[in-house]
Design a protein around this nucleic acid. Structure first.
Length: 258
DNA sequence: CCAGACGTTGTT
DNA sequence: GTCTGG
DNA sequence: CCAGACGTTGTT
DNA sequence: GTCTGG
């Protein structure tokens, strides 16, 4: 799953290189980014339910970079009220059923996207308490997540709203470590695409795309506990929120024999 | 037929 | 313990 | 998903 | 818009 994420603004357009963008593409996206970055803010920690804007890549005739709200609003949504309700339920989209669900199948078929993230947050449970982890790529690379996007026309305001959802798949062994119970039957995680697969997610046939919905790039992930992400101890949307923080109760109990 | 839903997560 | 709001 | 509420009254 | 439950 993926309910909390980080996306920093710096030179996001450059990730297009990993999608196989041409020099011309990069030039165009850089230009576009110059205007987008005025409204884009650094998300050191963003909770999906606050529905903030994230930068993502799409591909119609050309590779494009756009800002979209997290929480997909299907085009058939009728009112602002309904839009808010449904966007609270479409933070993630199960990869297994992506092409069947009424909320996602149009987006899945016609407008898949790539969300470049600096990391995401997951919770570990122990003795009835939760401990947040920040999960990120080793080597400070961005993670490239598979997603779907859709534009909603708000008829009461005439406004076009771009929205997206993050596709999820079975959790890999890194997730299994964070949920450090070897008997855990199934952890979920966002669809992380390897560089070689990114362009196929954007423009291949449905059949090919479905093959990409599998756990991936385990070895390239790193993670550590961070301070609380909600409540009175929450640091807010600042760099420190993703800094390593040790919880003594999570440390290995001292061995009797060491 | 109409009305109402349309989604995800996981027991540390 | 369980539901709801974000 | 987690954090926080978990209720009633009546109209600034 | 389309499907499901009643």
């Amino acid at each position: 799953m993926c309910y909390e994420a980080s996306q920093l603004a710096e030179k996001i357009y450059r990730e297009a290189i990993r999608i196989g963008a041409s020099d011309e593409d990069i030039k165009r996206l850089k230009l576009k980014w110059e205007s987008l970055k005025e409204v884009h803010k650094n998300h050191y920690h963003s909770n999906a339910f606050s529905h903030e804007k994230f930068a993502l890549f799409t591909f119609k005739e050309k590779l494009d970079l756009r800002l979209c709200y997290w929480g997909l609003i299907p085009s058939w949504t009728k009112s602002e009220q309904q839009a808010l309700e449904i966007s609270n339920k479409t933070i993630n989209a199960r990869g297994e059923t992506l092409f069947e669900k009424p909320s996602f199948r149009k987006a899945a078929t016609e407008s898949r996207c790539i969300i470049p993230l600096d990391g995401f947050y997951e919770y570990h449970h122990k003795n009835g308490k939760t401990y947040p982890y920040f999960i990120h790529a080793k080597s400070k690379k961005r993670l490239m997540l598979g997603g779907v996007m859709e534009t909603w026309l708000n008829k009461s305001s005439g406004e076009l709203i771009d929205t997206f959802s993050i596709v999820t798949t079975r959790g890999n062994d890194v997730l299994a470590k964070i949920h450090n119970n070897p008997k855990l039957k199934e952890a979920r995680m966002p669809l992380l695409l390897e560089d070689k697969d990114i362009k196929y997610w954007l423009n291949n046939s449905i059949k090919e795309v479905q093959k990409l919905i599998v756990p991936n790039i385990t070895s390239a992930l790193d993670y550590h506990t961070v301070q609380r992400l909600k409540g009175s101890k929450y640091l807010g949307n600042i760099p420190e929120v993703q800094r390593a923080y040790t919880y003594n109760e999570l440390l290995e109990p001292p061995s009797l024999f060491s």
